[in-house]
Every structure is written in structure tokens, then in C-alpha cells.
């Protein structure tokens, strides 16, 4: 039970590659913004960041910072990852549904493994790595905790 009570924090993130196409997303992360895009023609959001509108192929996708708030759409507590760099501590991979309706993959941090649930309110924050800042999510504190 001891490990179940621990807060889930993966100990290792590999360094992702950044291309010219995706650089605006990562630059925004450095400013503390989680960038979505919205097409000026069809109006739909898209993620991950790309250089054209994948919905209508016609309009220009405009950068739209997300509110960074959403809920857990699904999750998995990963207890075995034998990749280089990973240890044996469990961690949470989550699909977060942002308020804009877009579903993104990330880690749910600072959350006791027993507490994670579909529908749980979460918010984005940014973890500095060597060359960029990585968007992660954590539970939104309950109102009573905010005093």
C-alpha cells in the first residue's frame, strides 16, 4: 500500500525534438501558455500543433492559448515501463479534455494514485527540461483548500 499512497511523479522525461513547424508551440510553453489552434475558416480546434488545418485543409489555423483547465477523460497508472531512464515508481498517463473540447495526452502529477478519477478537474503547468518546458497537469485544488 505504501507505493499507492505516494504522489505520482515520473522520474524521467526524454528530451523531445522540435521542428520549425512545432516551434511556436514549444516557445509558448516557455511563456507559460498551452497553445491550441483554431481554424479561421471552419472554426474547429486542433492539437497537436501543425502547420495547416487538418479538419478542412482550407483555412489558416490561428494560435489560441488554452485556458489550461480541463478534466481527466481517461487515465492509466503505469507500473511497468522498462525503457531506459525510467525507474520503478508508478506514474499517471492521462488524457485530459481541455475546456475547448480538445483531448491531450500528458502526465497527471501531484496526485495520489488512489485519487485519480475520470472527470477530475485539472490544470496545466510547465516543467522545465534541458531545452524546453514540458506541459503537465495537476489536480485543481478544492475550493476549501484555497482558503
Amino acid at each position: 500500500m505504501r507505493s499507492d499512497a505516494l504522489t505520482a511523479n515520473p522520474i524521467y522525461w526524454p528530451q523531445p525534438e522540435v521542428s520549425g513547424e512545432t516551434k511556436p508551440f514549444w516557445d509558448a510553453c516557455g511563456r507559460g501558455e498551452f497553445l491550441l489552434q483554431r481554424c479561421d475558416d471552419c472554426g474547429r480546434f486542433q492539437y497537436p500543433y501543425r502547420g495547416f488545418c487538418c479538419h478542412c485543409w482550407a483555412g489558416r489555423p490561428r494560435d489560441v492559448p488554452s485556458t489550461g483547465r480541463g478534466t481527466v477523460w481517461s487515465y492509466s497508472v503505469v507500473r511497468r515501463n522498462r525503457s531506459r531512464g525510467h525507474g520503478t515508481e508508478p506514474y499517471i498517463v492521462a488524457v485530459v479534455e481541455l475546456e475547448e473540447g480538445v483531448r491531450v495526452i500528458s502526465n497527471l502529477m501531484d496526485c495520489p494514485l488512489d485519487d485519480v478519477a475520470i472527470g477530475q478537474p485539472v490544470e496545466v503547468y510547465f516543467q522545465p527540461l534541458d531545452d524546453l518546458s514540458l506541459p503537465l497537469f495537476r489536480p485543481v485544488p478544492a475550493v476549501s483548500d484555497q482558503g
Binding site: 515520473p10 524521467y12 522525461w13 512545432t22 492539437y47 515501463n81 525503457s83 495526452i105 514540458l134
Partner: peptide
């Protein structure tokens, strides 16, 4: 390496087939 698209938005988070 972790490719810019789409792995940088996914695998970086420790995703495996089972996860």
C-alpha cells in the same frame, strides 16, 4: 529520438502500448 510530430506530444510522457 523523440520525433517532433507526434511523439513529442505523446511518448515524452512515458506512454507504452500497454498504457
Amino acid at each position: 529520438r523523440i520525433s517532433p510530430m507526434p511523439d513529442a506530444f505523446e511518448q515524452v510522457y512515458g506512454t507504452t502500448v500497454t498504457s
